[in-house]
Design a protein around this nucleic acid. Sequence first.
DNA 1: GTCTATATCCAGATAGAC
DNA 2: GTCTATCTGGATATAGAC
Lengths: 218, 218
Amino acid sequence: MLVEKAKSRDAENTKQAILDVAEKLFSEKGFSGVSVRDISEASGVSQSLIHHHFGSKHALYQEVKRRAIERFWHKWHARTSAITHRPNIIREGIETFYWFVRDNQTIMRLSCWACLEGDTDLWPGEKETMDFLAQEIAEAQREGILRNDIDPIMLTILIEAASFFWWQYRANLVKLFEGSGRSAGEIDCEYLQTITKILLCGVLTHQKQTSGSKEELH
Amino acid sequence: MLVEKAKSRDAENTKQAILDVAEKLFSEKGFSGVSVRDISEASGVSQSLIHHHFGSKHALYQEVKRRAIERFWHKWHARTSAITHRPNIIREGIETFYWFVRDNQTIMRLSCWACLEGDTDLWPGEKETMDFLAQEIAEAQREGILRNDIDPIMLTILIEAASFFWWQYRANLVKLFEGSGRSAGEIDCEYLQTITKILLCGVLTHQKQTSGSKEELH
DNA sequence: GTCTATATCCAGATAGAC
DNA sequence: GTCTATCTGGATATAGAC
């Protein structure tokens, strides 16, 4: 049998190399900010080979996003499996989500670009990611640990919002604490503690709350 | 004296027309997604005149952002002046911010693109916008209405996060409620009610909280 | 102050050799 | 499967007439 020249005539390898580089660049500069030439030069693969494998720049972009979401979902699933259960599900959910977002900036940025670009139809793993927390919350409500006049999905969104927003605008936000002598890392932790405290207990003083209350506030 | 040909030889008018069109397009597609030719065609002003007035595409972009932030700050200042004061500052602050973000999508998108593009040095009015709410919160803490173990700026960031995130990802988020028979507008209102409830009172049942408590949670 | 014409470069995509 | 060479259009920016 013939031995392959072993140069790099490995289509799958080449495709993955292209995808890795494309993911990095698209995440940094968005779709319009990156040219196929950029990807070609950064990956050492010729332009035409990129077109050969993916058809067009747009199709490559879609594949980058698809793959990233898939990886995200797998990582999230693995991480959340380790969460111990009630009664601390909320605290752990917030912490897990918060650090997970920090550790997955690439896909967070991809998702943000995609949102601005009007891409709303994708995210096969997005719903599942949300549902995992939402189901745990619903269970905690049934057990009476959490007030049951709150939609679990709404609460999940708020947790996601608190984490996403911080890491998205972190460079700007830490500037608001200039002069306080705290490092950015310390502020990260303090923000997490604060949102946990507020989500769990609220901000009002003298708050007396009954389980499953249905009274309107004020 | 000579009468101007009145054609459109009004530099200031022309510049504003260019800025208006550029703001709309940059907000929709981001810096790299818009060409000077696009702006030229949409505004009816020749490409070279755009360069004449602003020097470069990048300088035009900067001016668009500068002007938008300035307008945002003036509008926010006008709107918040109407806020009645304690004890409902948090509730009103959240509602004001929430609807304000909805009504200013253009600048929200500009700010989001700018963030992704790594633009962190601008935003002359941003700090002031935050500080307004933070100062009211601090005052409410002094009056004993709000627990005083929370940094006012942190709370302001969380309020901002809850609003920004919703309007930023709204098209995706409403899909999570498909099948519930609620319209998008109803979900908008319900989300606002939910975050208000949570921020004010927290999510735990059986919560007994003392004013200015310094106990650690769990 | 505003235009037309154009220079120069780079984009995405394809042809065809190996 | 991968490359070099190239097509065609569009990008930013400038020159110079009016």
